[in-house]
C-alpha cells in the first residue's frame, strides 16, 4: 500500500472540504428553496403517515395502528434520507452545468475521487440534518411507541445503506456527464424505479415477480427491511447483520465501480467536448 505524505493528505482534505463548504453556502443562499423543500417533505411524510393512522377507518378492520404508522414513517424518512444522498451525488455534474462552473471545477488540481468524496460528505451531513428536522416535526403529530426498538441497530443499517447509495449515486452521476441535455432527467428515472421496487411503503412481496427481481439489486430494499426489523420487530444485532453485510458489500462493489465508470465518462466527455455544453 502506498502511503500518502501528510501534506498531500491535507491538500486532499482541504479540496474535499471545498465542496462541503461551497454546497452549504449554496444551501444558505438558496434558503427560500430549502424552506419550500423542507415544508414539502414534512407535508409528504405527514400525509403518508396519516394513511397508517386512518387505515382502521378506511378498511373497517382492526389494525395495529402504531405498527402501521411506524412502518410508513420509517419508509418515508429512510427513503427521504437515501434519496437526498443519491440525489446530491448524482446531481454533482448537473448542478455544475447549471451554474456554468463545470469547466472550472474540472480544471482544478483535484482528483475526481476527492471531488466525489467532498460531494458525498456534504450529502451525508445534509441528509442527516434534513431528515432529523423532518422526523422532529412529524414526531410531534403522532404518539410513537418505539419502546424496545434497536435504535442503534437501525442507525447502523442506515449507515451501511448510505454506503451502497453513494455507489449508486456515483454511477448515476455519469448520466449528466454523457448526456448534457437529458442526463439529469435520467437520474430521476433511476430514483423513481428505486422508489417503486424497494418496498418503501409496502412489502416487496406484493410486487410482481419481475419487480421483485429488480428489488433484489436495490440497496434501499435491504436498508428498509433492516431498519424496520430493528424498529418494528426489535431485532437483535445478529438478525440485522446479514442486511448490513449485504449493504456494505454493495457499497464496496458500487463505489469503486462508480469511480471507474465516472473516469471513463470524463475521458469520453473530454474527447467529444461534452464538458462545456450546458444542459
Amino acid at each position: 500500500m502506498i502511503a500518502l505524505p501528510a501534506k498531500a493528505v491535507r491538500m486532499h482534505a482541504r479540496a474535499a472540504y471545498a465542496f462541503v463548504e461551497r454546497n452549504f453556502n449554496l444551501v444558505r443562499r438558496y434558503w427560500g428553496w430549502e424552506l419550500v423543500w423542507l415544508v414539502y417533505s414534512i407535508a409528504n411524510a405527514l400525509a403518508i403517515t396519516y394513511i397508517g393512522a386512518g387505515m382502521q377507518h378506511i378498511s373497517g378492520a382492526v389494525v395495529d395502528t402504531n405498527y402501521l404508522v411506524l412502518y410508513l414513517l420509517v419508509g418515508s424518512l429512510v427513503w427521504g434520507y437515501l434519496d437526498i444522498v443519491f440525489h446530491s451525488i448524482s446531481e454533482t455534474i448537473a448542478w455544475e452545468r447549471w451554474e456554468g462552473t463545470i469547466e472550472y471545477t474540472f480544471m482544478a488540481p483535484v482528483s475526481r475521487l476527492t471531488h466525489l468524496v467532498g460531494q458525498t460528505l456534504f450529502s451525508l451531513v445534509y441528509g442527516l440534518l434534513f431528515t432529523s428536522v423532518v422526523f422532529g416535526v412529524v414526531a410531534l403529530f403522532f404518539r410513537l411507541d418505539i419502546q424496545g426498538a434497536n435504535l442503534l441497530g437501525a442507525l447502523a443499517v442506515g449507515a451501511a445503506g448510505s454506503l451502497s447509495f453513494i455507489g449508486f449515486g456515483i454511477v448515476a452521476a455519469v448520466l449528466p456527464l454523457l448526456f448534457p441535455e437529458k442526463g439529469s432527467q435520467m437520474t430521476h428515472v433511476v430514483e423513481a424505479v428505486l422508489l417503486l421496487v424497494s418496498g418503501v411503503y409496502y412489502p416487496v412481496s406484493v410486487l410482481p415477480s419481475w419487480m421483485q427481481r429488480v428489488a433484489a439489486i436495490s440497496p434501499a430494499t435491504y436498508a428498509l427491511e433492516g431498519i424496520r426489523l430493528a424498529i418494528l420487530a426489535q431485532s437483535t444485532w445478529g438478525a440485522l447483520f446479514p442486511y448490513m453485510l449485504r449493504l456494505v458489500v454493495m457499497g464496496f462493489v458500487t463505489i469503486p465501480l462508480g469511480v471507474w465508470v465516472f473516469g471513463l465518462a470524463e475521458r469520453y466527455a473530454k474527447r467529444t467536448g461534452r464538458l462545456k455544453r450546458s444542459g
Binding site: M11, R14, A18, E21, L26, G100, T101, E103, P109
Partner: peptide, 26 residues
C-alpha cells in the same frame, strides 16, 4: 483560466467563490 463568461456560482459572493477556489487549490 479566465474565460469571457465568468464561471462562478452566481448566488455566492466573491469571497465565497474565492474561498472555494482557494480550497480547491489546497
Amino acid at each position: 483560466r479566465v474565460s469571457a463568461e465568468a464561471a462562478f456560482f452566481k448566488r455566492l459572493s466573491a469571497v465565497e467563490n474565492l474561498m472555494y477556489a482557494a480550497r480547491l487549490y489546497g
